[in-house]
Amino acid sequence: MDIIVCLKQVPGTTQVKIDPQTNTLVRQGIKNITNPFDTYALEAAIRLKEQYGGKVTAISMGPPQADEMLREAISLGADEAILLSDRAFAGADTLATSYTLARAITKIEKYDLIICGRQTIDGDTGQVGPELAEMLSLPFVAYVSKIEEINNGQMRVQRMIEEGYEVIEAPLPAVISVVKEINVPRLPSLRGITRAKSAVIPAWGAKELDADQDRVGLAGSATRVIKIFFPQRGKRAEILQGSPQSQVASLVTKLRENGLI
C-alpha cells in the first residue's frame, strides 16, 4: 500500500491580525504551520501504512522553507518527502497547482492512494484534490470521514455530505480528501524527529517534473486576482443602554417590533 499525501504550508490564520494603521496583515509572529486539514490526511496515511504495510510519501509545492514542514511529516511517520519548488511555480491557482502535483505523482509512479486535506485554511478552496484526481484520471471521493476497509484493490470509505454520510466503494488507485472527523493526528516522536533531521528531501523543479512551462505557476493559472480589499463592515450596532434588565426589555421590544419573535 503506497500512499502519497499532499501537504501545504500555510500561515496559522487563526492568529492573523490586521494592522489598522496600514491595513496590512501583521505577519510578524505568525508561524507557518502544516495546513491543519492536511495533518488529518497524513495521519490517515500513516495509519493505513501501519495496518496494511507499504510506504507514505509526503509531497508539497511551496517555497524552500516548506522543507521544514516535510521534515515534520517524516517525524510523524512519513517514509519519504519531496518538495516541489521552483520560482516558476509561484502565483499558481488551483489549476496550475494540481497540474504540478499531478506531474510529481506521475513521476513517483508507484502509488495506490493519494490523500489530501479537504481544503487549506489560507486559500479555502478545496479544489486541488478533485482537480488533481481528474488530471490523473483517477476516481475521487471528497470529505472522507472514515476509511472502512481496503481489500483486493478496492477501498470502502464513508464520505460526509450535508444530509449524513454515504458509504462508497472505489477501485484503487484513487484520490480522496479527508475531513477533521477522520482521526486525531499523533504527535511527533523523538526517534522520528531524529530520523527527520537527517532525511534527504529532494526538491523537484519544473525541469525535474518535465512540466509544461505554460501550465505551471502564474502562467498556467486560469484565474487572476485583480483586486484585494478588506471586508466592509456594516454600520455599528445600536448599543442598548441601561441595567441588564432594561437592556433585555428593550431588546425584546425591538425584536417584536421587527416581527422576529
Binding site: R186, L187, S189, L190
Partner: peptide, 11 residues
C-alpha cells in the same frame, strides 16, 4: 499513551 508514542519513556 501519547507520552509513550512520542518516545518519552525512552529518554
Amino acid at each position: 499513551r501519547d507520552l509513550a508514542a512520542s518516545d518519552m519513556f525512552r529518554v
